[in-house]
């Protein structure tokens, strides 16, 4: 029974990697439904397969078993109906200006026929992410936050159904991050695009998502799906905010302790783990 507002369905998805003799169950029996216009957050320890799941949805990876369906059509490869925004700052094309990056996207996807129109649309999206006036700069002249804004504008410009965001604010400082969170919500409301957003940060997950999907690692599995019905704008000071926070915190395997301190430790721990999880690749 496919209901009308079911945007994305993930059925029994497995993803297994083989590193020589070793078998890594990056994802195991993932089942998820995403409704049109929803804002989904995925959180979980490092190496639990969050990026892998996003890459399967984007079509960069083929599932080992199971399938991903976008409005009942099985996904076979990358496409502009699902646009990815990456964490790293190198996703922009350095040989194009800020405007050029977006114009290029519009051109190669043959979305817009005339150069003049492409420019106008590109400007519209730059304005949306707050970068009006920066059109002629090259990526190397931008700050990290600005680069992520351009990446978001570029992804939105081709009018995807789903925006896939893999820790897009992960490398930004706390202030920039919180500004961008607010703006992302504004943009989400404005464009009504469906967003699947991976994060390491519990607070970020609660501020942004309608649903928070908590993953566990080895094998990568959905541990719990939390509905987040807090009214927006959400403030970390609110009581019910803390409740969800504690819950996720526990689910991620931490004991109840002083929250702020914990968050800091958590980040450090994640970072250490990240480094460790990188080791096999080196």
């Amino acid at each position: 029974m496919v209901s009308n507002n079911e945007e994305l369905v993930i059925e029994n998805l497995d993803k297994t990697y083989y590193l020589g003799e070793r078998r890594i169950n990056a994802l195991e029996r993932i089942n998820l439904q995403v409704k049109t216009g929803e804002f989904i957050n995925i959180i979980g320890p490092s190496g639990c397969g969050k990026s892998t799941l996003l890459r399967c949805i984007a079509g960069f990876e083929k599932p080992t078993n199971g399938r991903v369906k976008l409005r009942s059509n099985e996904i076979k490869g990358p496409g502009i109906d699902r646009m990815m925004v990456f964490q790293d700052f190198e996703q922009l094309f350095p040989w194009y200006t800020v405007l050029g990056n977006i114009v290029f996207a519009l051109k190669v996807t043959k979305m817009i026929a005339t150069a003049k129109e492409r420019k106008e649309i590109a400007k519209h999206y730059l304005k949306m992410v707050g970068l009006a006036g920066f059109e002629d700069l090259y990526p190397h002249q931008l700050s990290g936050g600005m680069k992520q804004r351009v990446a978001i504008a570029r992804a939105l410009s081709v009018q995807p159904r789903i925006l896939l965001m893999d820790e897009p604010f992960g490398s930004l400082d706390a202030m920039t991050r919180s500004t961008l969170q607010e703006e992302l919500i504004r943009i989400w409301k404005e464009t009504k695009v469906t967003i699947i957003f991976v994060t390491h940060n519990i607070e970020e997950a609660i501020i942004l998502g309608d649903q928070i999907i908590v993953f566990e690692a080895n094998p990568g599995r959905v541990k719990e799906v939390i509905k987040n019905t807090l009214s927006r704008p959400r403030s970390p000071e609110a009581n019910d905010f803390s409740q969800i926070w504690e819950r996720i915190h526990k689910l991620l395997g931490f004991k109840n302790r002083e929250r702020v301190l914990e968050e800091r430790n958590l980040i450090r721990l994640f970072q250490e783990e990240r480094e460790l999880s990188l080791l096999p690749h080196l």
Binding site: A58, F60, P78, G79, I80, R82, M83, M84, F86, D88, E90, Q91, L92, F93, A105, V108, T109, R154, V158
Partner: peptide
């Protein structure tokens, strides 16, 4: 060429 640029390109259908 960074892998993310390649994927950004593939994402655009290239």
């Amino acid at each position: 060429v960074p892998a993310t640029q390649m994927e950004a390109g593939r994402n655009l259908g290239l």
